[in-house]
Design a protein around this nucleic acid. Structure first.
Lengths: 253, 253
DNA sequence: TCTAGCCACATTGCATCCAACCATGTCGAG
DNA sequence: CTCGACATGGTTGGATGCAATGTGGCTAGA
């Protein structure tokens, strides 16, 4: 710790990470865990790279102690491996794990959809429609943006992901089972999100297919056809999973 | 810290628990997390009680640092709540959460059973039969032991739980999806195990019913009737869940 | 008697310190 | 030239110290 240049550890919020010191000074570890996880998701900490405690400490402007606690949380979440006396390594899934995860997720989202058919409100159905609209917009942006404009492309990615998340989250919300939702999130977050996008965005036809599947699900929910909605959702997720797994194999296998 | 002669610390000789330094000296935190979790499950740290870091530290013969990391893991697992500057509290589920969890678990175990129907080996079918036998033995022990012999009763509880776990685990093993198994475990361990036992053991008829349901599931697996096995497992888990939820409401509601 | 303010104690949060440990590169023997 | 013991730098693991925060009790005033 001798080399910290700006060793002004005074309570002045120097590093600017906390704009307004709104930090309740107890949520620091949880905040760190969230940030590190986000940096893993975006690929800033690539799969297979080492997470050095001191590097993270200087990066986020804290000491190693809270970093270590945050790493424990991430370990429990399955995002990293902790090798004693060696360090933490960002854990990437295998193709098999991708398939397994999507199989589990398909079942859970199927259940969520089945439940949602009973409880979904008109307002939530409208939100699903809204999500579809955003989804279609994002697809259009991809088509036109092509590779010419890289910035609009990542913007489209962001919009697409938001629309997709919105669709699934509204349904999970409508299902009214918090534990179910939390479980789906746990399964989902075990591997970087960019995977789904990277897979589907390669071929706009896949995106459109995805969109149509969403429509079909919403339509079934609108008719309160629980079983059908469930089946549609399961095959929807499974299909996406198979595509991701294949892409993953081409990439790393 | 070493000045506390510990009045209660004697009944659990933790500090001498590592006779031969078999500890790889890096697994300490994980070990602590496991032990604390076990003590929560057995009710030694009752639901709603505070977990004082220094108390845990002296109890397990370490300093507060590894304790804190272990608590972070348990927090991530959902077993405890961490209130900044106040401490860790053992989190008990609400009746609603019990219902939600069992609904999720039912779906997942249903999937596991469906998958198992395709992959289960004769050896695993034999293990299921073995589990049933142990199960029946435990029931018999409960019937005869009555309340007269308290020791044989807890022994029976242990046997019963082992048999029950064995049954479900063999099926999950046969399903061949590790992620599925891990997810079921995560959902399952969110609340103390004694609940299931405490519920079912009140009425031997429930135990016998449970046993018959196991038989039916095994029989369906034997016939490779995937759909039927799945349905049976789902209603099996749901029924158990409903019983636990009701017991829980009577107890705490 | 009741309540508001205050003070002392208990507990956590984070930083720092030291020992244990792994990896790598060097040097000497065969 | 190769292989193994050894020293060294870098990293993690766990303990301890100190400041910040929450809590309960005590007193003074109405």
């Amino acid at each position: 710790m001798a080399d910290t240049p700006a060793n002004v550890t005074l309570d002045t919020p120097e590093n600017g990470a906390e704009p307004n010191g709104a930090e309740p000074r107890g949520a620091l570890v949880d905040d760190l865990a969230t940030r590190i996880q986000a940096d893993i998701m975006t690929g800033e900490h690539p799969i297979g790279s080492w997470l050095r405690q001191s590097a993270l400490a200087t990066r986020y402007g804290v000491s190693r102690t809270p970093i270590r606690e945050a790493l424990r949380k991430l370990q429990a979440a399955g995002l990293i491996e902790l090798h004693p006396h060696k360090g933490a390594i960002v854990r990437g899934p295998t193709a098999r794990e991708v398939r397994e995860s999507y199989q589990v997720r398909a079942e859970l989202e199927g259940l969520a959809t089945e439940l949602a058919a009973s409880w979904i409100t008109q307002r939530q159905l409208d939100e699903l429609e809204e999500a579809e609209r955003l989804f279609a917009d994002a697809i259009a942006a991809v088509r036109h943006g092509d590779d010419a404009d890289r910035e609009s492309r990542t913007a489209a990615e962001d919009r697409w992901r938001r629309a997709n998340d919105m669709f699934h989250e509204v349904i999970q919300e409508a299902a009214g089972n918090r534990r179910l939702r939390a479980t789906i999130r746990d399964v989902h977050r075990s591997f970087p999100r960019q995977l789904t996008w990277a897979t589907l965005s390669e071929d706009p036809r896949l995106l459109e297919e995805n969109c149509r599947e969403h429509e079909a699900i919403r339509e079934a929910l609108d008719r309160r056809a629980a079983d059908e909605a469930r089946r549609l959702m399961i095959s929807h997720v499974r299909r996406a999973g198979e595509l991701v797994a294949r892409w993953f194999e081409r990439q790393y296998g």
